[in-house]
Design a binder for these strands. Structure first.
Ligand SMILES: [Zn+2]
Ligand SMILES: [Zn+2]
Ligand SMILES: [Zn+2]
Ligand SMILES: [Zn+2]
Lengths: 152, 152
DNA sequence: GTATAGAATGTTATATTATAACAGTTTATC
DNA sequence: GATAAACTGTTATAATATAACATTCTATAC
């Protein structure tokens, strides 16, 4: 998380946004889906499916994989989270997805992920696609390296 | 494979390139490593580790996972193949890796993968990174969509 | 040529990630 | 309150990948 980052507020915002998006599209943000989204935002870093599963579980009740994978499917489909393919991990969506696909800057030191929408980058990607005669549909753009904070 | 593509020659070229690269760097392209690379090029599409494992195995002898994963590690480390993270599959390297990281155009119809090095795209990526204060190290750029052939 | 160390392979077991299949329950709509 | 669709529970299993340790091969030094 960035400095001066009010994380409780940040989680609250994410959940409110999810409520809003779901209300608009008549989708059901059921307790499990909401809880999974909350856990993902609590981490605020890419988190693995089985870590979520552990956090969902308690001494009394162990959740099973389909529970978390179904929630992840729902959240992914509705752009409330993203999967970081290079890590098999899931991260909350930081932007509005009217726009093109996101790009992710992933710090290999602190694991923080920054999601960006860069129209310039989109244009370059479209141009490169055109050059190949390729019609892009969905992109996986994951840039690993060192974030500004860790570089200092 | 592209039209007019002489696939036997293409496999031969890939293996010769591997021999050359390994000779230059005093690396050992052992029979298993060579065989795995050959199987990857025979497919000429992203191929999964366990499919390789099956193809490596015979009725007399079933190979075990570490055999193929070790070969894959060697080939990946030396840029002779790449992993397509969004598919957990492996594909032969088509370019020379003095250059920056590759980008992959992946056709969701025919599964063909085109690896490209686009300096323009690299510049856009660097620019976007700079804007974030981010120092890029390694990129995963996978563009899914429809290739020129399938679009016709 | 043999000793040695490092690289590579063989082998068993297990960890990690994800889905199939089917039964049961809840929710919205008529 | 009947109906269909969506959601959840549960068991099992598939698919992907690595740990750990024993053994064999290879290159180089003596
Ligand atoms: Zn936060
Ligand atoms: Zn997003
Ligand atoms: Zn070919
Ligand atoms: Zn390459």
């Amino acid at each position: 998380m960035r400095e001066r980052h009010r994380h409780n507020q940040c989680i609250k915002n994410a959940l409110e946004k999810a409520e809003r998006v779901c209300a608009e599209k008549s989708l059901r943000l059921t307790p499990t889906r909401r809880k999974v989204l909350e856990l993902i935002w609590q981490s605020h870093k890419p988190i693995k499916a089985y870590d979520l599963l552990n956090q969902l579980s308690s001494d009394e009740h162990i959740e099973k994989p389909p529970t978390v994978y179904r929630a992840l499917d729902f959240l992914l489909k509705n752009h409330l989270i993203h999967k970081i393919a290079s890590h098999n991990a899931y991260v909350g969506c930081e932007v509005n997805h009217d726009e093109m696909d996101s790009k992710f800057f992933i710090c290999d030191q602190c694991a923080e992920v920054k999601e960006v929408c860069e129209p310039k980058l989109d244009r370059s990607l479209l141009e490169a696609s055109k050059k190949q005669g390729f019609i892009p549909n969905q992109t996986t753009i994951e840039i690993h390296g060192t974030c500004a904070k860790c570089a200092r």
